[in-house]
């Protein structure tokens, strides 16, 4: 790709079509001519045809745009920051969290609480881990700071609740052991989206 393509910053005339409109009629004769022209030209029927075509497409060509939301859901971006998930190690099935406490430290809304102890192998074991989703602002710092990719953001975005404080415990967020094979590696919330190449556009700046 040559450099000149990026140097062409003049975005104004590339894909846009200039709509031509005639001058405002001055004399009465011109006005009358315009009325007659509009009457004969059938501009109104163009509008009727557009809606009828849309109706035909929607009914018979499967072009209905309604998403019946609670029953159908649109896919969300992998970068979306929804309810947290705790991942497991794929080989052993043990949870990835090493109890370092970085997520608790970095959390700017103080919603993560972690408590650990040493187990018999002198490894850190998570005894208590809760996230208060009433406070969480889904900034994603915990997932970013985690050295083990243990806490990530999942795709559960329907988080309405009847209480202001809504705690979630470690076991709820942890991948179930029988679903280990379907656990997906999270690319991280700073990762590019899968269709990023298609979405690249030139910045519309004139200089």
């Amino acid at each position: 790709m040559g450099l000149e393509k990026f140097k062409d910053r003049n975005v104004g005339i590339q894909q846009y079509k200039v709509v031509e409109h005639e001058a405002f009629p001055k004399s009465n004769a011109q006005k009358f001519a315009r009325v007659m022209k509009r009457m004969v030209k059938g501009e109104l029927f163009v509008g009727l045809w557009v809606t009828l075509r849309t109706m035909y497409q929607a009914l018979f060509q499967d072009d209905m745009h309604t998403v019946k939301y609670p029953f159908e859901k649109l896919p969300i971006s992998p970068r979306y920051r929804a309810i947290h998930e705790m991942l497991r190690l794929l080989e052993s099935g043990h949870y990835r969290c090493i109890g370092c406490g970085l997520c608790e430290k970095i959390c700017i809304s103080d919603c993560i609480k972690i408590d650990t102890k040493y187990d018999e192998n002198q490894r850190k074991e998570v005894t208590e881990y809760t996230i208060n989703f009433g406070r969480c602002i889904f900034c994603g710092y915990c997932a970013e700071v985690c050295p083990e990719l243990a806490i990530v953001h999942g795709g559960r975005y329907e988080t309405s609740s009847q209480q202001r404080a809504s705690f979630s415990i470690f076991e709820d967020m942890l991948t179930p052991i029988d679903a280990l094979s379907s656990q997906k590696e999270y690319p991280g919330f700073g990762a590019v989206s899968p269709n990023a190449d298609d979405n690249i556009k030139k910045t519309p700046l004139a200089y």
């Binding site: 009828l52 849309t54 109706m55 929607a58 009914l59 072009d63 209905m64 745009h65 309604t66 019946k68």
Partner: peptide
């Protein structure tokens, strides 16, 4: 219903 179809919606369902 008709207005919904003409706007590619489903209408009351």
């Amino acid at each position: 219903k008709v207005l919904a179809f003409m706007q590619r919606r489903l209408g009351p369902m």
